[in-house]
Design a protein around this nucleic acid. Structure first.
Length: 441
RNA sequence: CGGGGCAUGGCGCAGCCCGGUAGCGCACCUGUUUUGGGAACAGGGGGUCAGAGGUUCGAAUCCUCUUGCCCCGACCA
């Protein structure tokens, strides 16, 4: 992509409404613009990152055996009356009427709808188990939206729903999502700690939140220090095998959010030098809720002996749009964002130090074509701008690599390659730079 | 919803107390000189001063109401 033809409105000064660093940087780097309280337009650069995050979520859901579908954003109130949540959900649910004055709502979550879909066609225990998910916009009419996309009213969420014949079987589905989440967040360069959580209005008796430690986190969390730096399960993890060892390895150490925190247990179970009290950002939340929805909505199958058995359910959410904020909170410096390689909107920023200079232009065009042909996503700053502004822009938007080409270097046959995360700069020949970039990406 | 605050060009702000018809920095456009880590000079474009009503010869400025947004608390991916 040529920057001269892209839409990248960067801000030199910080809009005053942005308090936390991720919000400031998202506005400054041209990722989002606020349209009204808690609702954001995703500008091209932000949209690319959103898609990258989604893609990682998809790949790990597939690995765990979950199947994607897509449900509507608007739902009929009748389904929620059936489950009993229409009155219980409160003002956070945006309620609307269509032209026939039918009660509708903008879905804050989809347990009812997925249960309705499943109950219509699944009649036999032989069809179980399965897990369905979608990545769809949700709306929760938050009392006070804040922190940019971290607590918006409209937000993109991955929500998965498992259906099993029994509680024991459902716990296996739960474990698959648990491990999938470890991999999902790990691939984004995040250290996510699963913590015992309050099931809240979704209901149920088994629940974990996945928390990113960050000073600007909304909740206080308490955990065993060793949980923070645990390795993520490898690509070769067999999701059809028993995952208990991986799950138990995390859940056996103390970790709790403030509403579940038990100071006495914390002190008793965790040696003093391993006690970690910090703030955290919730990026995922998983629940096992048994027959909470299948019972009122009559979602059952016939068992082997011919009797009706209620399906046991769980639901598993990832805040996809929130993750972008969380990633930036975890990875930035004074100059701007530092995207982890896996979610960076482009692999390389190519800086032409002297647009209009024939030799420099043609060297840049050549490099741009070669990198693009090699399958790399390149943002080529071909604008007729001063060098300082180009460097500042590239640092702000945080692409993993910056390749700098100017007439002075070309005279000596070298270009500069900079790693954004470390600030390391290296002068090397164009061919060496191309090799380095194509081999490491 | 309770408490606090803000609303003036794309962004950051001054002007308001003490009414006289809008200004600064950055950004943007043109030209010249520049050009290797946010250039200089000259010229220029852009504003229903959040909206409505009122007071007044005259309102960004004073009064009333409304709306939007932000911050602190209770809720959540």
């Amino acid at each position: 992509m040529r920057l001269s033809r892209f839409f990248l409105p960067i801000l030199r000064e910080t809009p005053k409404e942005a308090e936390i660093v991720s919000h400031r940087l998202m506005l400054r780097a041209g990722l989002v613009r606020q349209m009204s309280a808690g609702m954001y337009a995703w500008l091209p650069l932000g949209h690319i990152v959103l898609r990258k995050i989604e893609q990682i979520v998809r790949e790990e859901q597939a690995r765990a055996g979950a199947v994607e579908l897509l449900m509507p954003t608007l739902q009929s109130a009748d389904l929620w009356r059936e489950s009993g949540r229409y009155d219980g959900y409160g003002k956070e649910m945006l309620r609307i009427q269509d032209r026939h004055e039918r009660d509708m709502l903008y879905g804050p979550t989809n347990e009812e709808m997925i249960t309705d879909i499943v109950r219509r066609d699944i009649k036999s225990y032989k069809d179980l188990p399965f897990t369905l998910y979608h990545i769809q916009w949700k709306f929760r009419d938050e009392i006070r939206p804040r922190f940019g996309v971290m607590r918006g009213r409209e937000f993109l969420m991955k929500d998965a729903y498992s259906f099993d014949l029994s509680e024991e079987a459902a716990r296996i589905s739960y474990q698959k999502q648990f491990v999938a989440y470890l991999r999902t967040f790990g691939r984004m360069g995040l250290k996510a700690v699963p913590m015992k959580a309050d099931p809240g209005p979704i209901g149920g008796d088994l629940s974990h939140e996945f928390i990113i430690l960050a000073d600007t986190g909304e909740s206080e969390v308490f955990c065993h220090r060793d949980l923070v730096d645990m390795d993520i399960p490898g690509e070769d993890t067999d999701f059809e095998s028993d995952l208990s060892a991986i799950v138990d390895g995390r859940t056996s150490l103390y970790a709790a959010t403030d509403e579940m925190h038990d100071p006495a247990r914390f002190d008793a179970e965790v040696p003093e030098d391993k006690r970690l009290t910090a703030r955290g950002i919730e990026v995922g939340h998983i629940f096992y809720f048994g027959t909470k929805y299948s019972e009122p909505m009559k979602a059952s199958v016939q068992g082997p002996d011919g009797t009706e058995v209620l399906m046991h359910g769980g639901s598993y959410g990832v805040g996809v749009s929130r993750l972008m904020g969380a990633i930036i909170e975890a990875s930035h410096d004074d100059d701007g964002i530092i995207w982890p390689d896996a979610v960076a909107p482009f692999n390389v920023g190519l800086i032409n130090l002297k647009s209009g200079d024939e030799a420099t232009d043609s060297a840049c065009e050549d490099v741009y074509a070669k990198l693009t042909n090699a399958g790399l996503d390149v943002l080529y700053d071909d604008r007729d701008e001063r060098a300082g502004g180009k460097f500042a822009t590239m640092d702000l938007i945080g692409l993993p690599w910056q390749l700098v080409i100017g007439p002075r270097g070309l005279k000596n046959g070298v270009v500069e390659l900079k790693r954004r995360a470390t600030g390391e700069k290296e002068e090397l020949t164009i061919d060496a730079a191309l090799n380095r970039l194509t081999q490491t990406n």
